[in-house]
């Protein structure tokens, strides 16, 4: 066991969730058709950087794209196996060049996944197509297109939030004042009581004399 290489170190660990078992992606051409479809999607993703595809096909192909980029970063363009893989999965050969010369520098220092997958709107069911397929948008990070999701806006400055914030502050101030008063009155009571008892004892002492 000690001499055996650890399998997890042989392949790159991808930063996206991968299913335990591959999807078969039913296809009239059989397994060969599945591979063909994935090659087309991977090629399109590298070419256009943002594509909309059927969810299951896209999710399957995404792993292949991630693995290609990851290997390219790990081994560089002089590694024979990596080059063969890229050559196989990327149909247009100028995109192999893009993978090593454009995408590798882009993703070299990223800590997140290289691609992003978002759910596309589900089309309305029509009489012709009563079971619309789920679609997804896959994109390479750092693409030049406008963002799909608006960056979170700091909305503390919107008028209603300004008003609510001030109301909150005022409420808190009132509460703190209340608590402080409460504590004070309690402390007073206590000191009154203790002084009374002290007086009592003083009287007791004086009486026997």
């Amino acid at each position: 066991m000690a001499n055996q290489a650890e399998v997890t170190k042989l392949v790159s660990r991808l930063k996206i969730p991968i299913l335990a078992k591959h999807r078969r992606l039913r296809n009239p051409e059989g397994p060969q058709g599945r591979v063909k479809k994935i090659r087309a999607i991977v090629t399109a993703l590298f070419k256009y950087e943002r594509i909309e595809v059927y969810h299951y096909d896209g999710d399957e192909a995404r792993g292949y794209a991630e693995r290609l980029i990851s290997d390219a970063i790990r081994h560089g363009d002089t590694h024979k196996e990596t080059m063969e893989m890229a050559d196989y999965w990327i149909e247009e050969k100028n995109l192999v060049h893009k993978l090593f010369k454009v995408l590798v520098p882009r993703f070299q220092n990223t800590s997140s996944s290289y691609t992003r997958m978002l759910n596309a709107p589900i089309p309305h069911a029509t009489p012709e197509d009563s079971h619309p397929h789920f679609r997804s948008v896959i994109e390479l990070r750092g693409n030049p297109f406008p963002p799909l999701i608006q960056s979170a806006v700091d909305n503390r400055l919107l008028i209603q939030n300004v008003l609510l914030e001030e109301a909150k502050k005022e409420y808190r101030a009132a509460k703190y004042a209340e608590i402080a008063q409460d504590l004070e009155s309690r402390a007073n009571e206590k000191s009154d009581a203790s002084s009374e008892t002290r007086e009592d004892t003083a009287e007791d002492e004086s009486q026997p004399k």
Partner: peptide
């Protein structure tokens, strides 16, 4: 509040009260 802003009646009530 501006027309562009929507606020639920509870939160609006707090502002009103203040």
């Amino acid at each position: 509040l501006p027309k562009a802003m929507q606020l639920n009646h509870f939160a609006y009530g707090i502002i009103e009260e203040r």
